[in-house]
């Protein structure tokens, strides 16, 4: 069976045109695969390029070389609309920061991924309510925009949104950061459910216990540092 996520010979560097054209290589020769139902944790010291790898997987950063196949689509060569379709149907991403249009109520923010897929509004809202309840966002806040929420609340809204649709591939950037024990437990359960549902997951976990519990494998991105790889 072909892996859900397959990375080969990936290279990434930043060219700072406005700072003397400095070229900063970040990743070279990266390669790994993630199968359906598997959770892989990216490890490495701060600045090793964990977030950069995640962003490349999401199509947020451009790769300079190599290929990244997700669900059969090489996103390093795909058209924007193909990536958009992939993000809509196949590839989810829970970032550390919530970025939403101001004024949109929390319930809609969480239901949006399902609405974008054309699911019936009632179904999408029901799923959103379910997730918000599980993540202990009081229903008095559902009608308000999350932009006014605390950091922890925003993070939980972000997670609810990321798990609204059962993406076959899921990227998690520190999903348990800034959560209390109960909510952390809920998030870990959500991850386990996603795995059981067949999702291929790539995550960054600074929370070692959480990592040990949900990750099947670890990939040290330090190995992808330029000059280190073959």
């Amino acid at each position: 069976m072909t892996p859900m996520i397959h990375v080969e010979h990936l290279a990434k560097s930043f060219t700072l045109h406005n700072q003397g054209g400095a070229v900063i290589p970040v990743i070279e020769g990266a390669g790994f695969s993630v199968r359906a139902g598997e959770c892989v944790a990216l490890t490495g010291t701060s600045g090793a390029g964990k977030s950069t790898v995640m962003r490349i997987l999401y199509g947020n950063y451009l790769a300079q070389g190599g290929s990244v196949r997700i669900g059969g689509l090489d996103i390093t060569k795909a058209e924007p609309r193909e990536i958009l379709a992939l993000r809509r149907e196949t590839l989810g991403y829970v970032s550390q920061f919530l970025r939403v249009v101001p004024r949109v109520p929390t319930l809609e923010v969480v239901a949006e991924p399902l609405l974008a897929l054309g699911r019936p509004e009632a179904e999408a809202l029901a799923r959103a309510r379910d997730l918000l309840t599980r993540l202990r966002i009081p229903d008095t806040l559902w009608g308000l925009s999350p932009t006014t929420f605390s950091g922890g609340e925003q993070q939980r809204v972000n997670i609810a949104r990321g798990f609204a649709h059962a993406y076959p591939a899921l990227l998690l950037d520190e999903p348990t950061a800034s959560l209390d024990a109960t909510n952390r437990e809920t998030v870990l359960t959500l991850i386990e459910e996603a795995k059981a549902g067949g999702a291929a997951i790539v995550g960054i976990f600074h929370d070692l216990e959480a990592r040990a519990r949900v990750a099947d494998r670890e990939i040290d991105v330090s190995a992808f540092a330029p000059g280190r790889a073959a």
């Binding site: 930043f14 045109h17 962003r55 947020n60 451009l62 990536i83 958009l84």
Partner: peptide, 22 residues
Amino acid sequence: ETGLTDQVLDDPQAPYTQLLVS
């Protein structure tokens, strides 16, 4: 420069786009 909105804004390639974003 053209591309996905978040990609162009977060990882701009052309000198001018980098200047614009920064």
